Amino acid sequence: MQIAIDRKILLDPLSKIVRITEHRSIMPILTSVRLTLGTERSSITATDLEVSAVINVKAETPPADIVLRGSVLHNILKALEQGDVTLTIDQNTVTISQGKFVTDLALQDIEEFPEVKLMEADKKLRLKTKTLFESIEKVEFATGHDETRYVLTGLYFKHKAGNIEVVATDGHRIAFHRQDIQEDGLSMPGVIIPKKAVSDLMRIVGDEEEVVSASAYTGLSTPHNF
């Protein structure tokens, strides 16, 4: 099967999430990304089991669902020219071509790629990225690095009564920042988010003036006394 797709459609989202796949892991499949194309929710997915990212893309192509090494695919796409690239999918390989350039990548076992579930909440806290990142930047210096005290390596977030509070501590120092936000009638229990997840979010969103949605789920994000 052959798929012709604009290089930019793959490269832009891949550039934002490929670092998730670059961490050393005892599971080689976590160095890969999943490309789901030609469906209503075409997407690129990366996960290291601690942090997962799914970026939806507009890809009007034949249906395809494949797993490829993330950093290798990213480096190839960066080296190509603007315009369409062709993916020729066989049983065990994908051939990527553009003009005189041709290279083969081994397909990874899609059954080994962890399932990433997109959770839909009835209520979501919506924040401007500028508001969220300003609070993070004020306190992140105080996060801990001792993995034996894992709870201190994250940032504590809480929203209530028209403001958002962010706290970080390494057990010796503590940083606290409270910022007023537009009241939406919602509240979110206090949760601790790993610093790595926060860093990935800031890199993915970048300096764009976006609105992010935050939700806490029982069993996924556990409230803590901090």
Rank of each mutant, 00 (worst) to 15 (best):
L10E: 02
L11Y: 08
P13H: 04
L14H: 08
S15E: 14
S15Y: 09
I17V: 10
R19Q: 12
I20D: 03
T21R: 11
T21G: 10
R24Y: 12
M27V: 01
I29W: 14
I29V: 12
T31K: 14
S42K: 04
S43R: 06
T47K: 14
L49W: 09
L49P: 00
E50I: 03
I55M: 14
V57C: 07
E60C: 06
P63E: 14
I66S: 05
I66W: 13
V67T: 07
G70E: 07
V72A: 15
I76G: 04
K78G: 01
Q82N: 13
Q82P: 00
T88H: 15
D90M: 07
D90Y: 09
T95H: 11
I96T: 04
I96Q: 05
Q98A: 11
F101Q: 04
T103E: 05
D104C: 06
L105E: 03
A106K: 06
P114I: 10
V116K: 06
K117D: 09
L118E: 14
M119Q: 06
D122G: 15
D122C: 11
K124F: 13
K124R: 14
L127D: 07
T131E: 12
T131L: 11
L132Q: 02
L132A: 06
F133L: 03
F133V: 01
E134Y: 12
E134L: 11
E137Q: 14
V139K: 05
V139Q: 11
D146K: 11
D146I: 13
D146S: 10
T148D: 10
L152T: 00
L152E: 03
T153I: 09
T153V: 08
F157Q: 05
H159Y: 11
K160Y: 06
K160M: 04
A161Y: 12
A161M: 08
G162E: 12
V167H: 10
V167N: 09
G171R: 07
Q179G: 04
D180N: 14
E183D: 13
D184W: 11
D184T: 10
L186Q: 11
G190C: 05
I193L: 07
P194C: 08
K195N: 09
K196G: 04
A197I: 00
V198K: 12
D200N: 06
L201A: 03
I204C: 08
V205A: 09
D207C: 07
V211G: 01
S215C: 08
